[in-house]
């Protein structure tokens, strides 16, 4: 059916192990007792890396055509717009 699937399975195992490693890293960062802002930045950065690995390899975004990649990018941009849109409000309250 698909001769590409065999070598891919080795890649998927590597991605899986990387995801487990990044999960351990997230917990370790939390236990390290960083300053709150640093802790949040570290935790969300690692979460972003994990989401990127899942999207690129497991959801095959790396192999998809531009329309699908564009839909995924629209989702990411929408979340970023929501996050950036609330920054002025947060800045005024702090």
């Amino acid at each position: 059916m698909n001769p590409k699937t065999e070598p891919r399975e080795n890649l998927y195992l590597s991605v899986y192990l990387a995801l487990v490693g990044l999960t351990v890293l997230t917990v370790a960062c939390s236990a390290a007792g960083f300053a709150p802002i640093l802790g949040v930045t570290a935790a969300l950065s690692v979460a972003g890396m994990k989401a990127g690995l899942i999207g690129y390899y497991f959801m095959h975004l790396g192999e998809e055509r531009s329309l699908i990649v564009g839909i995924a990018a629209a989702g990411v941009l929408a979340v970023l717009a929501l996050a950036l849109g609330i920054l002025p409000d947060i800045a005024l309250r702090l």
């Binding site: 939390s30 802790g39 949040v40 935790a43 690692v46 979460a47 989401a51 899942i54 999207g55």
Partner: peptide, 13 residues
Amino acid sequence: VVWVFLFPLFYLI
């Protein structure tokens, strides 16, 4: 992917 973000936000930070 959703859980990947929920986990640090609700259990670690």
